[in-house]
Design a protein around this nucleic acid. Sequence first.
RNA 1: CGGGGCAUAGCGCAGCCUGGUAGCGCAUCUGCUUUGGGAGCAGAGGGUCGCAGGUUCGAAUCCUGCUGCCCCGACCA
Length: 570
Amino acid sequence: MRTSQLHLSTTKESPADAEVISHQLMLRSGMIRRLAAGLYTWMPLGLRVLRKIEKIVREEMDAAGASELIMPAVQPAELWHESGRWGQFGPELLRLQDRHGRDYCVGPTHEEVITDIARRDLRSYKQLPVNYYQIQTKFRDEVRPRFGVMRSREFIMKDAYSFHASPESLQQTFDDMHRAYTNIFSRMHLTFRAVEADSGAIGGSGSMEFHVLAESGEDAIAYSTGGDYAANLEKAEAVCSDTLAEPSEEMTLVDTPDTKTIQALVDNFSMPVEKTIKTLICHASEECESDLVALLVRGDHQLNETKANNHPLVASPLCFASEEEIRAAVGAGPGSLGPVKLPMPVIADHTVAAMSDFGAGANIEDKHYFGINWGRDADQPIVADLRNIEAGDPSPDGKGELQILRGIEVGHIFQLGDKYSQAMKATVLDENGKDVVMSMGCYGIGVTRVAAAAIEQNNDDNGIIWPLPIAPFEVALVPINMRRSESLKEATEKLYQQLKDEGIDVLLDDRESRPGVMFADMELIGIPMRVVLSEKGLAKGIAEFKGRTDESATEIDADNIVEFLKSKLA
RNA sequence: CGGGGCAUAGCGCAGCCUGGUAGCGCAUCUGCUUUGGGAGCAGAGGGUCGCAGGUUCGAAUCCUGCUGCCCCGACCA
């Protein structure tokens, strides 16, 4: 490819509304153009990256025994009614009607369609397991699209769905996909982690997310310094090694005016923060006899809302009580709450349950109790894991401690179980001729997000640094002042042809701009290798090579450029 | 959906407070010079100042409404 054909259009300045580095660099390098909120055109340069990502994904999915198909982007509402998701999905689902007034949606995901395929086509356990995948445009009407292509409304996803006659078979395909994903992101030279994840509303037993590590990542992930344990922060298990000490103080009621926060309690009464607790009141679930429940975490700990949400006594979705509701139930407001004589069930984090002689609100305005002890002063609480882990906490697998990194979720693999197959009656006959509901797994990769994540992880002041396997071009060929030298022009064209013949992905910068412009552009768009040809150099029999991350260029034999590059690319 | 901000040339911005001929840098086009790290000089083109009302002799500027976009929170590949 030649730059003159590529319609390369780069800018020095980035648009004011681009916040993250990948978004800025994708716009500056001309990879993408915005059409409307969350809608982007992939320009020729960007599309080359997408195609390379897709190719790797296809190869690994095929190798793992999955087979590609393609489903309609527009789906009839009936299927979503069957699965129950037409009502559940909310405004994120883009709904539309055809000329007859029939309801449709633009697919945000394809469980319903694939399950419909499976129940029509699969009759016998002998046909299982199967794993179908597609690479296709999805639409989710995100509340807040942002960061360019990282969280857009329209995006390209590789989604795969597997069907099984037994949980063991599902587990095996799940493990195969885990391996395939590891291969995929490894082949792209990305630094990533596979982490345990909350399966959320989708349910099912196993759920792993694949995160590309980057400072700007939206997710926090916890990993063990000593073992293999890694989990999304919302899922990471907090272990408490503290043991409950005997009471050593009497409980006392203390006047605490203007002390509404943990910080004020610590500052005004010299109380160690480890001796304080936060009392959070939220709505209770149906199975709780009370309307409200209290959640307790230590003063310096953070409530983990996913864990709270998953507790059987807590209403889902999690909803904190208003100040009015709290006053009506307790008689005191936020800032004066605590477990002593609290008229509702109390769920305490493990750490809180192991505390003695601690301080908390007295449920009387502007008063706290100090020296509280469980059993003696307050009823024994229900104990649960409620808090976010913190860096330095012991790892749940007992190996080393936990540290926290930020990550961008690029893949997610699920064991769905029979959620959809049950609702949509997708069954096969087993060995005994009996109908059995198939088990399902689903496996997604955000193809467009991978491109953004790769940039987020690999860039410098000059621009993008593409990992070689997903770079739009492998080599930039830059002739200096080509129009002034016929011999240079000939040598450049000859080399360009040779490189193409060798199957090397080369971009010839034939713009005849000043060298600085060409260098800057080739670095901005992130081409991993650069070869510079000049009349002076050729006269001496040399060319110049520079890797994108090299400090400076090195001279190479002009007669041996093709071999040199082949060895670099091998 | 709640909270905050922005809207002036393709991009980045000034002008608005205090109403009076719409400007700067980058990019684009022409010419000359230059040519190994985003060239210099001279010239040129390009904007119903987001939209609709209102106030006024006169509105980018003041007032009202709308729309679009961005940022912060709950969702997700």
